[in-house]
Structures are given as C-alpha cells and as structure tokens.
Design a protein around this nucleic acid. Sequence first.
DNA 1: CCGTTTATGCTCAAAGTGAGCATAGCTGTC
DNA 2: GACAGCTATGCTCACTTTGAGCATAAACGG
Lengths: 361, 361
Amino acid sequence: MFRVKPPAGGLHSLEEAMAYGQLRESTARVSSEPEPSIEAGTAPVEIGLNAAIVAVTGNEPVVLVIRHEADSAGATDGLPFGPFSPLQHRTLESGLRAWVHRQAGLELGYAEQLYTFGDRGRHAQPGDLSPHVVSIGYLALTQVKPSMEMQHGVWRSWYHYFPWEDWRRGRPEILEATMEPRLREWASERTSVPQPVSRQERVRICFGLDGAAWDEEKVLERYELLYEAGLIEEAARDGRDAARQWSQRPRLGVPMQYDHRRILATAIGRVRAKIKYRPVIFELMPDDFTLFELQRTVEAILGPHLHKQNFRRLVEGAGLVEPTGDVKMRTGGRPAKLYRFRREVLMERPAPGVRVKPGKV
Amino acid sequence: MFRVKPPAGGLHSLEEAMAYGQLRESTARVSSEPEPSIEAGTAPVEIGLNAAIVAVTGNEPVVLVIRHEADSAGATDGLPFGPFSPLQHRTLESGLRAWVHRQAGLELGYAEQLYTFGDRGRHAQPGDLSPHVVSIGYLALTQVKPSMEMQHGVWRSWYHYFPWEDWRRGRPEILEATMEPRLREWASERTSVPQPVSRQERVRICFGLDGAAWDEEKVLERYELLYEAGLIEEAARDGRDAARQWSQRPRLGVPMQYDHRRILATAIGRVRAKIKYRPVIFELMPDDFTLFELQRTVEAILGPHLHKQNFRRLVEGAGLVEPTGDVKMRTGGRPAKLYRFRREVLMERPAPGVRVKPGKV
DNA sequence: CCGTTTATGCTCAAAGTGAGCATAGCTGTC
DNA sequence: GACAGCTATGCTCACTTTGAGCATAAACGG
C-alpha cells in the first residue's frame, strides 16, 4: 500500500533511494504479502474508536461513561470504546456506532469526529504492556430519554471530570484555591530549554489569570497544560517525569481510563465552539421546548449565564425555531410558548448556531 | 489493550458477555501477549499520514504534490505521505513532519490535523490489493521561498484539482457548462431507498443552484457529492457502481492518488473557514507585506473579491498588523506602507482571524 | 506636467448587540 | 379572590459593527 513508485525516470539521488527505502522499512507490512505477518522490529498499530456521548439533563451536561474495575484499587471511568476492525466496519463511524451499541445499548444519532491522538504513552494503563494505540475520538449528542435503560453505562456530569470548567455559579472555587498556586509554581520553574511562549504566558492565557479573559472553548488546552505540568493523575500514571507528588492530594477532577479525559476535553471544547455556529444544540433538546429551556441547555454547555431577552431575540430572529402553538403551563410563572426546531435552517445558507456571548443575567 | 475488565460484580447478562467477547474477537491482538501475532480472520490496519501543504504564490493558492508514475498510463499526483510508525514517530504529527521532510525536503511550520478517513475502498489504486488503510490528513501552511529547492515535489494550483472552486473571476465556467447538467441528471434519478434529504436539495445547497448561495467552505461536501454521483474519476477507480461513463470525458478537475483529493478538499475547506477566525493567513505571508498583498492572499484562498477599504479597516482595527515604518515603492501607484503581523494577538483573547465576507470590488 | 493607477482617509446609513424597563399571565397564599 | 411572587415576552435605546462609496494622496510613465 505504502509502496511508492519511484518517479518517472527512476531514482534520482541517494537520498531519494534512502527515502523510499525508509518508507518500506518503517512499514509494518507490504501490500504484496497476502497473509500478514509482523516483521521483527516493527510495531502494529491498533485503532481505538472512542465516543464522548453528551446530553443535558436537568441543566446538567452529562456524558455517558462506563465504569471499570481498575487493576488494583477503586473503579475507573471510561468512555465507550472499541477497536476499529476493518473487516467488520465499513467506516470508522459505523465501527464506533457498533461499539456504542454493544457497550451501552444506545443507538447514536448525531456524531462527529473530533481528533486522532497517537502520542506514545498516553494510552497507558498501570502495569499494561500495551501496543501502540491510536485513538480516534468522536463527539455524539443525544437526549436522555426516561425510557433509556442502559446496560453498563451511566450518565455523569462532565464537570465531574473538569470541575474548573463549571462557571455556572461564577468562577469555580477550585481555580482560586488549588489550581492557581500550583500553576504559578509550575510557571515559575526554570525550563531547561527556552520556550517559544513562556509558561507564565501560557498559564495566563489558558486559565484567564492576570486580567486575561476566560475562554470557555480552551478546554483541551487547559487539560493539556495540566497534564504537562503534572498536576493531574493521568500524568503520573503515564509516567511523566514532571508528575508531582501533590498531584494526588486534592486531586483535580476525576481521572479517566487511558486518554479518555483528553478526548472528553476535546469534546467539550468542540461542543462549546460548535453550538455558536451550527444548530447542534437541538440534538440535545426534545421535540418541543420553551425558549428558556433552550437557554438553560445552552448555559449548561457553555457555563456562563446569558441575557434572557437577547437570547430569545437571537434565536427567534435567526429563524432557528418556530412556535408549535402550544404552551407549557406550570413554569413557575406565566405559561411559556412551546417551540420546535426549524429543520429547514439546515438547508439555508450558513445554518447558523446560537451566536451567544456571555452577558448579564 | 482493548481488553475491557468486566464491571464490578462480574458479567451481568449474556449480551454483556457477548459484548466483551466481541471486543476481543475483533481485536487484532490482546495486550497480555508479549509478542504480537496476527490472529486468523483479523485484518491489520495501516495508518497513512498525508499532508496538504498549502502556500500562495503570485495570487495563486498552491499545494505541494508529488508526481508518481501511474500503473499504466500517465502520471498521478499525490500528496506527500507515509505510514505512521510508532517505533520511530513519537506523535502522529512528528511522523508527518518526518515524511514530508524525506519526501519533499521541507521543514513544516504550521500544521494541523484535518480528519481521519477510514472508508473501505477509498484508498484503492487500480490493481492494488491493498490492506486496510486509515488516512490521517493534515493541513500545513507555508510560504514558497525562492531558495526552496524541492527534491520531488512541485507546487500546483489547487484549482487545478478543483476548478469549480475558483470564483476569482466570477462563477466558474465549468459549473454552468458541464457540472450543472450532470448534477441535475443525477438528482433527478430515482433512488432505491428514500433519502432523508433529497438529492435535489443536496445539489442545490452544495452547488448554490436555484437561488441558494455558494458557500465557499463546503469544498468537501461538494467533492463527496461528486464522488457519490460518480462524476469524478476516483469514483470509477474505486469501483463505485454509480460511476458514469461520462465521468471520463471532459473530466472534472485532475484526479489524485488514493484518497488524496478528498484530503485536499478537506484542507481547502478548513483553510477557508479558519482564516476567518484565527490569524493563520499570516503563515502564508512574508515578514513584511502591504495590506493589499495580504488582501490578495486572502482572496486567493477564499475566491471572491473583497472590499478594499473595509478590508484594511478590519485588519488594522483588529490589531492584527502593525506598520513597520517602511514603504514599498513600485506598486503601480502610490507607495504602500509595509506591515508586519502582530504576534501578540495570539496571546490576546480570541486571537481573531480576518472576518471577511465577499463584497463589491 | 498630466493621466493613470494604487493607497488611504473618511462619511453615512443600515443592521446587529448589550442592557434594561415595563407588562402579561400563571400559581399559591392569606 | 386580591395580592405577592415568578417567569414570559414586548419594546426601547444607545452603541458598535458592517457594507458601500466618495474623495484625496502620491508614485510612474510618457
């Protein structure tokens, strides 16, 4: 497969020959061999399909996790996942759907690919002599229907794993109390090699310190920085030299199996960004809803509160919804009109999202 | 690796046991085996790293391609690529950089992952009994420096491969003349299974027919639709039943090796989207430039022309650039002030891009 | 020195946004 | 059963952002 034909006229230089030779050498196997066999010195690669399945229940953004018995103590949460098997899966996404169906008994609706991670060591499990795994992360959006009885999965708030991302009641406690001092300590360390961007500056931008604004979309950047600084358990588990002893004490969020927390971070960042320019928020909503329920769902995802009147102006003005004609009683006050998603917007020019910015309540 | 521990309390149902069994069955190997061996009935997967390296020279958006001698007739263009080898590459991206360096003698600067494609059959080459390949596409942005002497690569306009994407001189000829009738014919065919969105509607949205607006970011959607409709050579090559005989005649753009044209389509769509919200356009610019040169570069990427005065207001107003103090003579008119990219914006809140919309010249 | 050509400054109206005030219409209570 | 307490909705207003153009500045080539 990866055998590359020399360009017309044959090989032109030693370097070129080397390049082609190298191509073969580092390839696990060559397409002409009918029955695969692993050559000495090469490593096979497995492809893991991982799903961050997100929903919102009761104003809480939740993710579907599978609880596993860890090797020694306690349980570890993980995302539904399984290997890509080209013989059984026509596409990567269909493979993912198959796995999710098997593991969680759930038929996925909306799903999109997030990112493919291949870092050596980031897929480790304690005591696990694992081969090389490339993880493909997916984001799926769904609703939690009461009828949904899941076999092994549980819905858990994503802020469980990322407490510092929860800005619904203002700046989260844990940031000030625990993370800021540790981050500053890490930032003030001498680095052996000079960095293009100082640790100081990176911490400032990622965590909105010293006057920098908090960017709710930088979820992955924050997680990766914490990993690099050795402040979260996964860093210690993967054997990062930088892993601190104090990473264990008041731990920062609940860790996950393999690199699943990284995938979840990617997922959160992606939803937060995406609902602003694509109408994916409606994947999380029931057929009929009030505008305030919609707003609460957006807020659950984004964190900060939105200006109510402007929110409805925006949503109605963009033609994202249409009234069903019904009203919902017992809202605690005046009854609220019910709306439904206008599917037609998907066929209109830029298929807009909920272009919101944080504002006053 | 993919062996999943049963949840606490053991297996709870037959279905669960099946699921775990299934997990193992479709896995190439299990982590407890120290020396890997491929079990019968499983298929190994190779991971291909592919780079769409984009630059702009003389108002032409170009991509770095490697020309290969095809199996029978003519030459085929391909992107620089090679397999991911976990023993040699610490990360996917470093593997990509290594391959590009080897194949094109080029040190990559800015690079970002695009997408991972795994469709069966889309990686075929005529007469190639290939194993299953999962392609990871990357987008890299660079400048074409005169000193750059490449071994085997050539820079080619990306509109070479996607003539229908070239709107710099208005709606491209080929759309009206060749594509529209073929697309309409395909859209009017009966489909065996009812579609959630009609072919009619998809064609209308993708290609801006019947009053729909042309969305310059839907590059991949258009390419995939053409593939599905059997209107491009790759479809015939991959043996799609739908491939038409007339896909050969006045062919639609130059085809590429494997699924490289799909990767390039993804890349074009991504740059077009990204320059609007991240300052990546400067990766394509020399250190000093005039605002009009910057505008021309943006236009080369996006297609349509921009309103000159508003463009400069936007770029200056967003603090993306600062004057160097020098001027460029011989512009054909009044000398133009030279500017440079203000790197500091990368450290400012949302690190904006060139939020432009097509306008009057 | 003048016409041509590109660079730059500035204006203006329309549309979009952030904040709030004010009113409507349930529900539960005394 | 009038009122207090809430949430839903309508609407205003000042301020920004954006789309289009007019007008002036400053080289360059005859």
